[in-house]
C-alpha cells in the first residue's frame, strides 16, 4: 500500500491505495465520483479524461500514486455554485450527447481545447483536437457544434470575469 494526497475538485483527499490503483479507479471507487468513465483499455477512447493540474489527462493511464500533490478536476467539479459550466450548457443546447457515456470526457477535453486553442475555434481544429475522444452515438456533428458554441460562451464568461 502507498499513500497519496491530492486535491480533487477543490477538496484535499488522502487515500491509502494499492500502487496499482489508477487515477480513474481512485475517483470512481474510492471517491465515488462515477462521472468519469472507462471505455477502453488502450488509452484511446477518452471517456476517462479529467484535468490534472489544469490540463487534460486520461485518468485510466495515470497511476493515482503519480498524483501526489496534484490538483484534479472531474466532470463533477466544473459547475460553479449551481451554475453549469458554459461547455456543459453548450453540449445540452446543441444535443452534443446521446447515451452520455463519452460525454464527461468530451466536455473535459473540450474545455482543455479552449484553454489551449482559444475561444474562437473552427470546425477543423475541433475535429483534430478531438482525436483522443471516441463517441459512438453522435457522429460528432453536434459535439463539434457544441464545442465551438461552448468556446464562444466561455469567451463571454472570460470577458465578464475581466470586467
Amino acid at each position: 500500500m502507498t499513500t497519496v494526497t491530492l486535491t480533487v475538485n477543490g477538496q484535499s483527499v488522502t487515500q491509502a491505495i494499492d500502487p496499482r490503483t489508477l487515477l480513474v479507479q481512485l475517483l470512481r471507487e474510492n471517491l465515488r465520483l462515477t462521472g468519469t468513465h472507462v471505455g477502453c483499455d488502450t488509452s484511446q477512447c477518452g471517456a476517462c479524461v479529467v484535468h490534472v493540474n489544469g490540463v487534460s489527462v486520461k485518468s485510466c493511464t495515470m497511476l493515482a500514486a503519480q498524483c501526489e500533490g496534484a490538483s484534479v478536476t472531474t466532470i463533477e467539479g466544473i459547475a460553479q455554485g449551481g451554475q453549469l459550466h458554459p461547455m456543459q450548457e453548450a453540449f445540452r443546447e446543441h444535443h452534443g450527447l446521446q447515451c452520455g457515456y463519452c460525454t464527461p470526457g468530451m466536455i473535459m477535453s473540450a474545455i482543455d481545447i479552449v484553454n489551449r486553442k482559444g475561444t474562437a475555434l473552427d470546425e477543423e481544429t475541433v475535429r483534430h483536437e478531438l482525436e483522443g475522444n471516441i463517441c459512438r452515438c453522435t457522429g460528432y456533428h453536434n459535439i463539434v457544434k457544441a464545442v465551438i458554441a461552448g468556446a464562444e460562451a466561455m469567451a463571454g464568461g472570460m470577458r465578464q470575469a475581466a470586467e
Binding site: 465520483l33 462521472g35 466532470i75 463533477e76 453540449f91 450527447l97 452520455g100 457515456y101
Partner: peptide
C-alpha cells in the same frame, strides 16, 4: 435527461 449526463451524475 441531459442534466445528469453533463454533470457526471448518470
Amino acid at each position: 435527461e441531459d442534466h445528469r449526463f453533463i454533470t457526471g451524475k448518470g
